[in-house]
Every structure is written in structure tokens, then in C-alpha cells.
């Protein structure tokens, strides 16, 4: 890439130098009024010597000729705004051809190489961008998938937590009901035991009272004859055993 840029710069520099080098002779080829007049006079033999030399001898005895004057006046006429001078066409065309050849041989390949490199770079960039886009889409899809997984996981955890909470609540309710049932059963047992104990105590109390009364009745009713009969009965039982 850098070499292509250097080559392109050198091509442009060479073309510029060529343009200036061929332009100088074009401007010095008699485009001025003075040059035009010198050429006319030299053509009619009025000037002896080199017109570019300081020692020019001008013979003015033919200056009043009408043909010469017309030609001289022609030098004052403005050049054609459309068609340049022949020499300019020649020099310009040569320079153009040289420049064209240089450009075809050096400039255009360099520019084409640069354009190709630029296109390749743009294509690579586009490919990279496409790849980055694909990667981004992949990352996005992965992110979406992970987000969906996270949502599913969160939903699952929430469901599990809700299920666990329901289970804990059910267990607590069952335990509370069991405790209540046990407490009721225990209370009923205690009440029954208390009732049985009260009945037993009452029965014992009644029995004690009744037996106390019976004992007093028996004692009062046991006279000497009764005592004797009891003793005799005891002796008979011992003797008969």
C-alpha cells in the first residue's frame, strides 16, 4: 500500500515536470506581437541579422508597401479564442501524449493498484464489518439465548421456591394439625384419667365412709355370743383345713 502511494506520487511529479518542461518552448515560439512582426519583416527581407540579436538593421524603405502593412497589422489582431496556434497544438499534443503514456504506464497502474487496494481494503472492511455483524448477531443471539436461559432459570427457581414454600407451609400446617390433634388427644386422655381418678377417689371415699359405718355397725353388733361364735368358727376352719 505504501509503495503504491509512493509510485503514484512519483508519477504525478514526473507528469508535472514534463508539463513545465514542454510548456516553456511553446511560450517562446513567437506568440507575442513583437515576434509576429519580426517574422513578417524577416519574411519580406526587411531585417538583416538575427531578430533575437541586439544589432538588428531594419530597412524601412519597404514598410510602406500595402501587403507588408496588412501582414504587420495582422500581428495586432487577437488570436483565435478557439483554435490555438499550431505550435501550441504540437507542443501541447506532444506533452499530452507523453503525459498520457506516462500516466498509462505508471500513473494509471498505480492509481488502479491504489483503487484496487482501496477496494480490497473496503471489501475487507466490509467483510470484517459483515463478520463483525455476524459475530455481533451471534453474540446477540447468544445473549438472547442466555437471557432466555436466565429467564427460564429464574422462572424455574421461582417455581421451585414457590413449591418449597408451599411444601413448607403444608408441612407446617400438617404439623400444627398433628400437634393440635395430639394436644386434643392428650387433653382428652388427661380429662379421662382425671375423671377415672375422680371416680376412683369418690368410690374409695364412698367405700371408706361405707366401710367405716359398716365397721361401727359390726363392732356394735358383735356381742360376746357373736365373738364366741366367730372364734369357734375360726377354730373349726383351722381344724378342718
Amino acid at each position: 500500500m505504501r509503495q503504491r502511494g509512493i509510485r503514484l506520487g512519483l508519477s504525478l511529479l514526473l507528469a508535472t515536470l514534463g508539463l513545465f518542461a514542454f510548456a516553456v518552448p511553446a511560450s517562446a515560439s513567437g506568440e507575442t506581437v513583437g515576434g509576429c512582426m519580426a517574422e513578417v519583416l524577416e519574411h519580406h527581407g526587411e531585417i538583416h541579422g538575427d531578430v533575437n540579436h541586439e544589432h538588428v538593421e531594419i530597412q524601412v524603405h519597404h514598410l510602406h508597401e500595402e501587403e507588408l502593412q496588412d501582414e504587420l497589422e495582422g500581428c495586432f489582431e487577437a488570436p483565435s479564442p478557439i483554435l490555438p496556434e499550431l505550435n501550441e497544438i504540437i507542443w501541447g499534443g506532444g506533452a499530452f501524449l507523453i503525459l498520457f503514456v506516462v500516466m498509462v504506464k505508471k500513473g494509471f497502474p498505480a492509481v488502479k493498484a491504489a483503487m484496487d487496494a482501496r477496494a480490497d481494503k473496503i471489501r475487507d472492511d466490509l467483510d470484517a464489518a459483515e463478520k463483525a455483524k455476524t459475530d455481533a448477531q451471534s453474540v446477540h443471539a447468544d445473549y438472547e439465548a442466555r437471557l432466555a436461559d436466565a429467564k427460564n432459570e429464574a422462572s424455574r427457581l421461582i417455581d421451585e421456591a414457590r413449591g418449597a414454600a408451599d411444601q413448607v407451609r403444608a408441612d407446617l400446617v400438617a404439623k400444627a394439625e398433628a400437634d393440635i390433634s395430639e394436644m386434643k388427644s392428650r387433653a382428652a386422655s388427661e380429662i379421662e384419667a382425671s375423671r377415672q381418678q375422680a371416680i376412683a377417689d369418690l368410690r374409695a371415699e364412698v367405700a371408706g365412709i361405707a366401710l367405716g359405718a359398716a365397721e361401727k355397725v359390726v363392732q356394735s353388733s358383735l356381742d360376746d355370743d357373736a365373738q364366741r361364735r366367730l372364734v369357734d368358727q375360726y377354730i373349726d376352719e383351722v381344724a378342718g383345713s
Binding site: R203, A204, V206, A207, G208, A210, L211, A214, E215, V218, Q219, L222, A226, Q227, L230, V231, Q233, Y234, I235, E237, V238
Partner: peptide, 28 residues
């Protein structure tokens, strides 16, 4: 109260009214 209670060594022959009252108390 009435009757006799005899102790011969480790043997006891109880024919007393007290024993009968106690039996009656136990039955209650």
C-alpha cells in the same frame, strides 16, 4: 374386731373381721 389372727413362725392364719372388711374395701 372379731375372730382370730394366728402367727406360727412365718405363717399367718387370718380369720378376723378386720380382714374381711379390708377385702370388702379392696373390692370397692
Amino acid at each position: 374386731i372379731g375372730g382370730l389372727v394366728t402367727e406360727i413362725g412365718d405363717d399367718i392364719i387370718d380369720g378376723s373381721v378386720r380382714r374381711r372388711l379390708n377385702q370388702l374395701r379392696e373390692n370397692f
